[in-house]
Design a protein around this nucleic acid. Structure first.
Length: 275
DNA sequence: CACTCTACCTGTGCGC
DNA sequence: TGCGCACAGGTAGAGT
């Protein structure tokens, strides 16, 4: 499931590789499944046709494409995108515009297409006037949060750690995989309460979140049996129920906490936390 | 406020 | 072989 590192990888692919989406002009917008557009589809098609992509930014798991419309007095419009669970985005030669699960594609100049594939069809695009329209409801980006800010936000609540890490209003970008990975790395049980952590444990959680995410970004995402082919970040607990813990050899447990499959080591992440 | 449940989707993998 | 079904999960929104 695309989380912050996977979305960052998509951003780098679109903007830093050759070819790049920067300065490409949209010649045609093709929506193959109407539900992929949130809001007015006609307006989206109208505003983006002829528009030139100037920049792409990321906040948490969201991507924002900055377009200007040369035919309309350089008017700026932002396209917001969320990949949700199975969405994937590619910049490709135009002869690869559509495959089985393509939900939309943009015909671009220079013989390119921007193609969005999404088997489960949860992913969405919509227009915003500013990214802040979306990001104002989110917490700070998980990779751009300093220790002091993290500790301040953490100690302002008293919530179970697993649902807290998944809450995009607390910290933007962490999903089920990296929540489990970070809690394992920090040696904290998923149901420990944020308000009951010692300062040492809070610092450990901050370092674990930062380390897991930045390492995964360098690896271009997680490497999970058959789910992604792109990334090479080696998971330690996620999807490893029944297998030995990489630290102590105990059996990794999977339980359902807060309606999410949660993987942890009962030995390295005891509920009665150590100080 | 903290937490739970459901809807949205469809491919996968299991048991029978 | 094939059928039915639980399951996976990010987010929004309603409910406890």
């Amino acid at each position: 499931m695309p989380e912050l590192p996977e979305v960052e990888s998509v951003l780098q692919c679109l903007t830093s590789s050759n070819p790049s989406i920067i300065n490409r002009q949209v010649q045609q917008v093709c929506i193959l499944r109407n539900s992929v557009v949130d809001g007015d589809q006609q307006q989206l098609e109208q505003r983006l046709t002829g528009a030139v992509c100037q920049d792409v930014v990321r906040h948490g798991k969201y991507l924002f494409f900055r377009f200007i419309q040369p035919e309309d007095n350089q008017r700026v419009v932002w396209l917001a995108l969320h990949l949700r669970m199975t969405g994937r985005l590619f910049l490709l030669p135009e002869d690869q515009a559509v495959i089985r699960h393509t939900r939309f594609y943009f015909q671009l100049d220079q013989g390119l297409v921007l193609r969005f594939d999404d088997p489960r069809a949860f992913g969405r695009i919509w227009l915003v006037s500013q990214p802040e329209q979306v990001t104002s409801t989110l917490g700070p980006d998980a990779l751009k949060t300093g220790q002091q800010q993290f500790l301040k936000r953490l100690s302002a609540t008293n919530r179970q750690l697993k649902p807290l890490l998944l809450d995009q209003a607390f910290l933007a970008g962490i999903g089920n995989i990296y929540a489990d990975e970070a809690l394992f790395k920090a040696g904290l049980h998923p149901l420990r309460k944020s308000g009951e952590l010692s300062r040492t444990e809070m610092v450990r959680l901050y370092k674990a979140v930062s380390d897991v995410l930045s390492t995964a970004v360098s690896a271009k995402g997680a490497n999970i049996d058959g789910v992604f082919e792109a990334g090479s970040y080696p998971v330690t607990v996620y999807g490893r129920a029944g297998q030995p813990c990489v630290k102590c050899g105990s059996e990794i447990i999977k339980e359902r906490f807060a309606q999410r499959g949660t993987h942890f080591c009962p030995c390295c992440q005891p509920f009665e936390g150590s100080i």
